[in-house]
């Protein structure tokens, strides 16, 4: 499946949108998604050592899985509302195809992510700037791969026998849902890079994981801070 995503996407999309049983394709895409994201996750968490690397190798695939789980129903409703001829299983597999492509892209960037993380000064209270740089760097990488992954989704959707305007509307709405939910999932499952503050020891999940959300945090913390500078 890994190589089919890279070299035989058109055949894969034929399978995805055809009458082939969905379960085997679904399983194969799941394996690729988990493997690719786990590889990148390990590099992402390695700044704080093996423990966070192991946590992140588990949590990054989880972010992708939960994002797809929380958006798939909405995506299906949108496709029905816009008149697209997609069954629920098609929507689910298309979502997984996009996320599996994202995971393959992440895996290809793992050597670079690992090198940057390895070159970063050790995480202590004085390394706040490094923490922020790493945070921005990984966010940019994951976002870039996410956009790259949805390119596969777009190529699949333009094959549908519907006006391009309708397909584009559905694509944009799916994308917005992924971005909105993906950002929040990553926030709820933090830490990924790992804090340098003693207030936040290394844990799998923070106790306040579901207290507040990332967009509130941006609105009440980051934006006012940047505004005041």
């Amino acid at each position: 499946m890994w190589f089919q995503l890279l070299t035989g996407r058109e055949q894969l999309l034929d399978r995805v949108l055809g009458d082939e049983p969905a379960t085997p394709i679904f399983g194969q895409l799941l394996v690729v998604m988990v493997a690719g994201a786990a590889l990148y996750g390990a590099a992402l968490g390695s700044w704080h050592g093996a423990q966070l690397a192991a946590y992140d190798a588990f949590k990054l695939p989880l972010v992708l899985l939960l994002t797809s789980a929380f958006t798939v129903f909405f995506s299906w409703v949108v496709s029905r509302a816009l008149g697209l001829s997609l069954q629920f299983s098609h929507v689910a597999i298309l979502t997984f195809t996009g996320l599996a492509t994202t995971a393959v892209l992440l895996a290809s960037l793992t050597p670079i992510a690992w090198f940057f993380t390895w070159c970063a000064p050790i995480p202590d209270a004085s390394a706040r700037t490094t923490h922020n740089e790493l945070y921005l760097f990984h966010t940019a990488f994951v976002a870039m791969c996410g956009v790259g992954g949805t390119h596969t989704l777009w190529r699949a959707m333009v094959r549908l026998p519907h006006p391009r305007r309708v397909v584009a509307s559905a694509y944009v709405l799916w994308l917005l849902a992924y971005a909105l939910v993906g950002g929040e999932m990553a926030w709820a499952l933090r830490p990924f890079v790992g804090s340098v503050s003693l207030e936040h020891p290394l844990v799998f999940l923070r106790e306040d994981a579901l207290t507040g959300n990332v967009y509130e945090f941006i609105g009440t913390d980051i934006a006012p801070y940047l505004w005041s500078r």
Binding site: L6, T7, R9, T101, V104, L105, A107, S108, L109, T110, P111, I112, G148, H151, T152
Partner: peptide
């Protein structure tokens, strides 16, 4: 190299 390979194929 890995990213060039994957970007190119995709």
């Amino acid at each position: 190299v890995p990213s060039l390979y994957v970007f190119g194929l995709l």
